[in-house]
Design a protein around this nucleic acid. Structure first.
Lengths: 146, 146
DNA sequence: CCCAAATGTAACTATATTGGTTACATTCTG
DNA sequence: CAGAATGTAACCAATATAGTTACATTTGGG
């Protein structure tokens, strides 16, 4: 089961970007994503640990981007909220078999190649690129909603 | 939860490669992988549908590679047994929000980039490469076990 | 020609992950 | 200091995965 945390995280960051420097509350974000505020806070928490957003507690708190959208790469977002590899190794192959004994070492290298490929693909895309595409997609879109 | 089907599939194919043209039974494979024969048969079934192996039913049946190891790319194996994307889109963002309305289209493109990157990374590795690395890893390894 | 052995597959179970929800301690601001 | 927000724990439902049993189907050998 692939998680949707990355998708939600990008959605969240896009909303924060459009809000500029006014802090956005988890409840508002949750409405746009169409989920529960706690789910959003969990994502925000991960993004905050990764230094991509800053959250302010207390009354009139909320979250803002920690950097300009051009300086946030999707690879950082991915690392912040997903586990990394699209497949895992099998637990305990038979050690008294030439294949079973060594296959995991080989597969770990393959796993490394794949993770690197994902990382590089996502490093090419910035949050600003996402905003630009959103703008292009929604050329018909209203400006004055949130 | 990332599945281990790809890892098991590569393990299975390596065993078939080493068996040459003698058919290997799911039970024998299961012993090396250290799992249940049905789990192996499920993987073999997917690999068979992808035309990577041929299975023979009935007494003295079993599975063999459908091609030489050099002509089997790990990208084909991955496609045969895994679902594709390491992340999924979130179900139903709010359509009356400029971001919510268009984010999924943008994310689908990102998803495409990532899937392409995985595909290309795995297309560079053949089953023969895996066999060579197994050999290198297990240079100390016995030849006469299965 | 049948029987043993193998695949293909359905059905069920246990376990883990994910996302949704409630609840609440903590931390701010006005 | 009161209200509002985050951070987080605890729980639940839904789903995916892998393991297991069971069995219909197929096939080759005696």
């Amino acid at each position: 089961m692939a998680s949707s945390r990355f998708a939600v995280a990008v959605h969240v960051l896009a909303l924060l970007a459009r809000a500029g420097d006014v802090p956005v509350k988890s409840g508002e974000i949750a409405r746009s994503v169409n989920t529960n505020p706690v789910v959003i806070r969990r994502i925000l928490c991960a993004l905050s640990r990764a230094r991509l957003v800053v959250a302010q507690r207390g009354a009139s708190g909320g979250a803002q981007l920690a950097r300009t959208p051009a300086r946030i790469k999707l690879s950082e977002v991915y690392r912040a909220v997903e586990c990394g590899s699209p497949f895992s190794l099998h637990p305990a192959p038979l050690r008294r078999c030439a294949v079973g004994r060594n296959i995991c070492a080989v597969l770990e290298r393959v796993q490394g190649e794949v993770e690197g490929a994902i990382e590089r693909a996502l490093a090419k895309i910035s949050l600003q690129d996402v905003l630009d595409e959103l703008q292009a997609c929604g050329a018909q879109g209203a400006k004055r909603d949130r």
